[in-house]
């Protein structure tokens, strides 16, 4: 466990000055800012919108883009960047000749990628709420203060996080095994596009394909209950999320056995 913690800290130390790390912060800042500017500049159009719909419209700008393409692509990028640090510096051989178990090195790297993904999505929630309240303060005619959906936002992004874990495990393993940029990225992009097509066409088995999970997760987030119209209920544990979690665990464990047995060039 000590080796794992040491390796995890080292992952942060190594990447803290790279785009791999800063991407987790820049992406939510940029997208949330964009959503803020979009609503702010068109505020007159939203004057008569009910508070709940205001929040939904603001949130859907980030959620829509993340749910369709950005989240899978960001996940592919994170998986690539944490492994690329070692490929680029040719440091796998030194990393695996240190007195650390192979599990500690592999596990810490994976969980660091997982942490970056979590950080990115957590910042989306925070900026979404912050910018919503800022809009309410700057433009009092927009009644952002009259509705609260913090819990729902946390739930939705938590669902998105879970739905991206399948992709993370697959891409992590691909990026670990392949030193070049094109193979894991190319494969990931093609799979993502396929996933988007499958999910947007409502193919009934799209929940079985990991790259369709983020989009499927957004589409299945609203519970179809007959509650009052001013209340949203988020359905977190849908098919996509379960399949994503199963894929994530299976590929992560399989990856460990591959690393354990593999020779380091």
């Amino acid at each position: 466990m000590k080796g794992f913690i040491l390796s995890f800290r080292s992952e942060f130390y190594k990447t803290r000055k790279t785009l791999g790390f800063w991407g987790a912060i820049i992406l939510p800042v940029l997208i949330s800012l964009l959503a803020f500017v979009a609503v702010y500049t068109k505020s007159d159009k939203f004057v008569n919108t009910p508070p709940m719909m205001l929040w939904v419209q603001l949130s859907m700008i980030s959620l829509g883009s993340m749910g369709s393409l950005l989240l899978p692509i960001y996940t592919i990028f994170v998986a690539y960047s944490v492994n690329n640090v070692e490929h680029k510096a040719d440091t796998w051989k030194t990393l695996f000749s240190l007195p650390l178990s192979r599990w500690a090195v592999y596990g810490a790297k994976y969980f660091y990628a997982l942490f970056l993904l979590f950080l990115c999505l957590a910042l989306f929630v925070i900026f979404n709420i912050a910018f919503g309240n800022l809009l309410g303060a700057l433009k009092p005619e927009l009644k952002f203060g009259e509705y609260h959906m913090e819990l729902e936002l946390v739930q939705v992004y938590y669902k998105l996080f879970l739905s991206a874990l399948g992709i993370l495990s697959i891409q992590f393993l691909l990026s670990l095994l392949w030193a070049d940029f094109l193979k894991p990225m190319g494969l990931g992009f093609v799979a993502t596009i396929t996933g988007v097509i499958l999910a947007s066409n409502n193919w009934e088995y799209s929940y079985l394909f990991p790259y369709a999970h983020p989009m499927g997760a957004v589409r299945s987030m609203i519970k179809n209950n007959k509650g009052p119209a001013n209340h949203l209920e988020i359905n977190i544990y849908t098919h996509e999320v379960y399949v994503s979690l199963i894929v994530a665990v299976v590929v992560f464990v399989a990856g460990y056995y591959i690393v354990q047995r593999r020779s380091i060039k």
Partner: peptide, 28 residues
């Protein structure tokens, strides 16, 4: 054991000292 295999494995985006600090962290 201390080892140096083929070309030294160094993180180019870190300074010389940071490279050593990173390893020092791992080796305590």
């Amino acid at each position: 054991i201390g080892s140096l295999i083929e070309q030294p494995a160094i993180y180019h985006h870190l300074t010389g000292k940071e490279n050593l600090m990173n390893r020092a962290m791992l080796l305590q």
